[in-house]
Design a binder for these strands. Sequence first.
DNA 1: TACGATAAACTTTTT
DNA 2: GTTTATCGTA
Length: 731
Amino acid sequence: MTLNLDELNPQQRAAVEATEGPILVIAGAGSGKTRVITTRIIHLCGKGVSPYQILAMTFTNKAAMEMRHRIGMTLERNTNDLTISTFHSFCARFLRREIGYLDRDRGFAIFDTQDQTTCLKRVIRNLGLDEKSNPVAHFRNKFSYLKNTGDLETEPEFDLDRQIFQAYRKELLAQNALDFDDLLLFTCRILTEFDECRQRYQSRFQYIMVDEYQDTNKIQARLIRLLLNDKNNLCVVGDEDQSIYGWRGAEIQNILDFEKHYPGAQTFKLEQNYRSTQRILDYANKAIAYNEQRKPKKLWTASKGGPPISIRDEYSGMSEAENIVQAIIERHEKKNIPYNEFAILFRSNFLSRSLEEMFRRYQLPYQLIGGLKFYDRKEIKDLLTYMRIVVNPKDWTSFVRAIGVPTRGIGVKSQDKLYAIYSDGYTLPEMFDHAIREKVLSGKAHKSLVEFRALYRRLAAKANEEAPEIWLESVIKELDYLSYLEKQDEATAEYRVENINELLGAMVELRSQGVETLAQFMDFSALVSDQDELEDDRPKVNMMTVHAAKGLEFDSVFVMGLEDGLFPNQRALAENSNAVEEERRLFYVAVTRARKRLYLSYARQRQTYGSTVANPKSRFLIAPGEDTDSDNQSLFTRSSRTQRKAPIGELHEQVNRMKEQLARRDVDIDFGALDKNPRLKSGDVVRHAKFGQGTVSATRGTGELTTVTVYFPGKGTKTLVAKMAKLQKVF
DNA sequence: TACGATAAACTTTTT
DNA sequence: GTTTATCGTA
């Protein structure tokens, strides 16, 4: 074993060597956090601790794999005994073993957001409620937040909410399904209620480490507390300046009050940054200093100077995208920086659209992280659905999907009849038998169901005999699924078949990593995170949300869409200063991803929803000073250079350029928007006769049709036709 | 019941 | 500008 502690700086080394009792490591961006955790584990093993006794929680499965790999390389031994995983994966594995304590079946399904939605719709329908006035997404978010922030038995306050909540939980129970939040909740429940079980795990895990502690929520903190024995050998690592998950219940207090929660805790601060240039760090430090809820901290680096930060004032979303593309090409060609060393970050997923278009036009290779996940794609979900009904014969949600792919003439009406039987407590195969025996369905539908039952029996019989990918191939054949895809949409069929091949390939590959059964594969596919899908070994430019970029770093980083209303986004602006502070932390995370070059940009107007919106530049952008350069020649195309010299010519030049583009492609651009300056702009305060004073969040369209979206405190956000609403500008 | 066409609603951020 | 909901028709 080779472990050289001399390679660490004094603070890192102290954090590694402090093995006993509660330890808090405040690790600024790029301060070698991952290195400290891995080295610490190696150091523990060197001291004779068995890997079996160590538990480390990471934020992504990928990070877990990488750490395991590094540790294995150094220790020169197998690391299977070491538990490194995400909270959710840990709980899924825990529950597959231990859920019997709650009298539940180990074959439970894990419902993702889509499944949750389907299930909740069924619940709302069952209760005879109207879907329109009871939007599913609202309840989904509400229940999720509750499960993550409440105590184990917390229920909603309002009657209707509670009624739906209870019905939802009952439905999940009937379908033997757990949603993402249940994974944590049920694990905590078992560890709380069953002393024998808790003691087993407490005596096993002697050392626990948690990464990204600033993003843990109440239930996660509780879980850690339950797993800890009286030695309290807990080491948490995090940075309150990078807390960006408040909206899903993360409690920044977990890290701020760590010393209070764990008396006698030792604290180490890692402030030396090994990632970015001094320029980038200075900029980040200045930006985050505007936040009030933080402990003062200053990152520094040994690498002085660095190129200035580029801040670009763009005319439109299009020119923003185009200039990013050109800056990448230039840096790639001149400095030989590989494409995968570039990242373009944005606040919201929809901003990727204009980028993608531009990348395709310039034929630059890129990968978009987030958005639709691989395992959420239709063709993948369709096939996995069959896997799920076989593994969990109570999964009604998946059954509904399976019966409709391909269509079999069993529609909503027949489904309702079948559901009536199912909801008496039958499993799916029992329900088939019953419905067929009693001839519940009419002619054609009945015949279809008989066929479906036969198919189900064939697939179920083979499920435990064959390797997962062989089994799935037989599903594809039985369904004649490839012809189905062809029939559905010729244009996308080829691409979808490629994805299916990738799925089969992944199943083979995962078998070597211990994913051998259909159930294990289901867990894996349910819990992949965005970052897990990142291919970092291909020369492709990365595009992702700032959230998805957490923990990553790149040579060059572009942060786009820096406009009030987008970043910080409208909701945060409408809420309170806490929300804006979280947005600012998000901005801090974004800029600290960059090693050498940082490019910030905003557009005076951009297309959203198909209409034009104009937002002022983001409040997060600090006025250009010695660290920044808003006049960086090499980055600008000729036309935008002209733009700065002669602002009056700007419009015509841009219009002509866009018209040219328009001629080349069949895209509609609203030129009307260029002629008039909307009088009101985002951030203006206006008075409305009925609603009182409010803040403008966005303006859309031009002339007669201009609409203004205004947030009125206590009354919500209203979209008004400017001309009709007679808004008075206050300031 | 399936499937097409048309209208409405929609965008934070994620496991 | 895109996805989902609803309606009418085969």
